[in-house]
């Protein structure tokens, strides 16, 4: 494992923990898109189908369990927690799951490297992860009012994607047969979705003003 991959995993982990801790401690999910969180829970569930069958390393298994556990916990908090669910901006978070789910499923059925259930589900999770942030970005754009933790959550997720690209570049040059077009293209698209957010995030940081997205 190279340094970019490890740093990518750690920012990914940090993003999820920031969100979970925010919800748990301030008992509010204001500004958080349930749609995005449900899509991530589905991403992990479909990608790690073989978690108890294929063993890669202790590190991998533990990380997978953390991502599965934290994503489903966040969804549970927003939907079921007595206090937290009242702070959910239901009327603003109107992005339709199906607009993302259906194209990803069709694409996974058509463009995959092997037509087996496991492989199609894995490919579906790659495509879905690329676009799962969209409901969250739309919600941020709509409410414009971004608290620090939600801003940090999106920033850390974007950093994780950028670091994974560096990891792929590194692996491409250091490992033989490391060519993964599907993962790379989906990953690059996913990272580009954050470009606009990053721009405003750095502007607000540079000028030390509160992060606000243009309408």
């Amino acid at each position: 494992m190279n340094i970019f991959r490890l740093a990518g995993d750690m920012t990914h982990l940090a993003s999820v923990l920031v969100l979970l801790l925010k919800i748990h401690t301030i008992k509010s999910c204001s500004g958080v898109s349930l749609k995005t969180q449900e899509l991530y829970a589905l991403v992990f569930a479909t990608r790690y189908l073989d978690i108890f069958v294929t063993y890669v390393s202790f590190y991998n298994t533990v990380m997978k369990l953390i991502f599965l556990g934290s994503s489903f916990s966040i969804v549970w908090y927003i939907r079921r927690h007595r206090v937290v669910r009242r702070s959910y901006d239901k009327d603003q978070d109107t992005f339709r799951h199906l607009f993302l789910l259906l194209p990803c499923l069709v694409l996974a059925l058509v463009i995959n490297e092997k037509f087996t259930f496991k492989e199609v589900m894995w490919t579906f999770s790659i495509y879905l992860e690329a676009v799962a942030i969209l409901p969250q970005l739309v919600l941020l754009q709509r409410t414009r009012n971004i608290d620090n933790l939600t801003g940090q959550y999106v920033f850390l997720l974007g950093a994780y994607r950028a670091l994974y690209i560096l990891n792929w570049i590194y692996r491409y040059f250091t490992e033989e047969h490391y060519v993964h077009w599907i993962t790379w293209i989906a990953g690059i698209i996913q990272t580009l979705l954050y470009a606009d957010f990053f721009y405003y995030y750095f502007q607000s940081w540079k000028n030390s003003v509160k992060l606000e997205l243009p309408a």
Partner: peptide
């Protein structure tokens, strides 16, 4: 398959 090689990624 490719996904088997890259299964070491999360």
């Amino acid at each position: 398959s490719s996904s088997d090689d890259s299964k070491d990624e999360l």
